[in-house]
């Protein structure tokens, strides 16, 4: 498989406009590769550096040492920035602060318009993106008439319309209610199915990270766990050491096990948890 995003000995600290250092190392010597078409979740508590990592990958921030490549392009080279952003889309936490236009379909057209595409093609892409996020019926609405989850789906559609290879979502559900969260997660899964886009999901919700193919846990600017969700969430001691919770279903099984119930603790989502418990009860 080819590599979508990669970091080599990446370190980062913030500076003011005169280049003076204003923070400690936010990211410390991170090396990782993200494969094309994969769904990777980055977990970490507040201030762990996970959002900074997201911003480094599409060139909003440039590493203070080490190298970052997006689609094989070196992000520290200013000439590559436009090309990188064409291929690596980014969705932010607050849906209100990333919608530019006063009408949903005009906002989705914003990205493709910036790419200088012919108008018929923009029209096609906008309609397709609207359908992909299931917002076609709302195409003439004003953003202020939409719920948080709907706004975030519009923001995702705005990125999809640019046809990127990869989409980075920086805590896209942090400001949403549970209904909005599940809408957005459903949309992310659909994108993977339809377009095979690489997804890098920054989150602090365990239940969302469980749905990924690979989980990277960041603490204090360092990668401390990088494994499949099954391997990560079945080891609650590791997660609790860095101040993260385990998914509720895993926690339930662990508590049962600690009470002496003979149960396997490999379940990480509701379904497998129910299966495990059923087996136990039917016995």
């Amino acid at each position: 498989m080819s590599i979508q995003l990669s970091a080599e000995h990446l370190s980062f600290y913030y500076t003011d406009e005169n280049g003076n250092r204003t923070s400690g190392d936010v990211l410390k010597d991170i090396s990782l590769e993200i494969e094309k078409g994969s769904f990777v979740a980055v977990l970490g508590h507040n201030g762990s550096g996970k959002s900074t990592l997201a911003r480094v990958f599409n060139g909003i921030l440039v590493p203070t040492s080490g190298k970052v490549f997006a689609n094989g392009l070196y992000t520290s080279d200013d000439e590559n920035i436009y090309e990188i952003r064409r291929h690596v889309g980014m969705v932010f936490q607050n849906p209100d602060n990333q919608i530019v236009a006063t009408i949903v379909e005009d906002d989705i057209a914003f990205g493709p318009e910036n790419l200088g595409l012919p108008s018929e093609e923009i029209r096609d892409r906008v309609d397709e993106a609207l359908n992909a996020v299931d917002m076609y019926d709302y195409r003439f609405h004003a953003p202020s008439q939409l719920s948080g989850g709907q706004k975030q789906r519009v923001a995702i559609a705005g990125i999809i319309a640019m046809r990127p290879d990869c989409i980075i979502l920086d805590e896209p559900t942090a400001m949403l209610d549970p209904k909005g969260r599940s809408e957005v997660m459903k949309t992310i899964h659909m994108l993977r199915e339809i377009y095979g886009i690489t997804v890098l999901l920054i989150t602090h919700y365990m239940d969302e990270a469980v749905e990924a193919d690979r989980v990277i846990v960041i603490d204090d600017g360092k990668v401390i766990i990088d494994n499949s969700p099954e391997n990560v969430f079945t080891k609650p001691e590791l997660l609790q050491a860095v101040g993260l919770d385990v998914p509720q279903s895993t926690e339930l099984l662990w508590r049962l096990k600690n009470l002496g119930v003979p149960v396997s603790v490999n379940a990480i989502n509701e379904e497998t948890c129910v299966d495990t418990l059923m087996k136990l009860l039917v016995k």
């Binding site: 909003i60 952003r85 064409r86 889309g89 990333q98 530019v100 910036n114 790419l115 640019m162």
Partner: peptide
């Protein structure tokens, strides 16, 4: 935030 989001959508 909006300026960053616009730049990320290739606005020049």
């Amino acid at each position: 935030e909006l300026a960053t989001a616009m730049e990320c959508r290739c606005y020049r």
